[in-house]
């Protein structure tokens, strides 16, 4: 559900942008299985790695922030896939066993 959590995320993104900071927005666009946050959940990230919001229960935010910083620098949107696989299960996998797709774009 979009109404409850998004206001603060986008408001903060706008605030950062007005302050002249580079900002990216990450959005959950697809989920499979028991993903922790619904489609539409968002994270706003600054070029120095500050962020608000959530796209998971905290499992993948770190990885999304890294990709977002790259997006802020090169302006290219990115589609990130996360799920539990053997080699990343303890790195950036989802403890719940779900899979999610996150779209990251720069706020111009």
């Amino acid at each position: 559900m979009t109404s409850a959590q998004n206001p603060d995320v986008l408001q903060q993104a706008g605030q950062w942008r007005r302050e002249g900071r580079g900002v990216a927005i990450a959005t959950v666009v697809t989920t499979w299985g028991s993903a922790p946050r619904p489609v539409g959940s968002q994270l706003a990230i600054t070029e120095d790695g500050a962020f608000v919001g959530s796209v998971s229960g905290g499992c993948i935010e770190g990885a999304v922030v890294q990709e977002a910083v790259d997006t802020i620098h090169d302006g290219k949107p990115r589609m990130l896939d996360f799920g539990v696989t053997d080699d990343q299960a303890w790195e950036v996998g989802l403890a719940c066993g779900g899979k999610i797709q996150v779209y990251v774009e720069r706020l111009d």
Binding site: T2, T27, V29, T30, P38, G40, Y103
Partner: peptide, 23 residues
Amino acid sequence: ADRSTTIETAEGPVFLNVFNPPL
């Protein structure tokens, strides 16, 4: 439906992010 979703179109997948006011 108050549900964000992705649909397939001839020009590629389109993500529809729903922003409804509070109930």
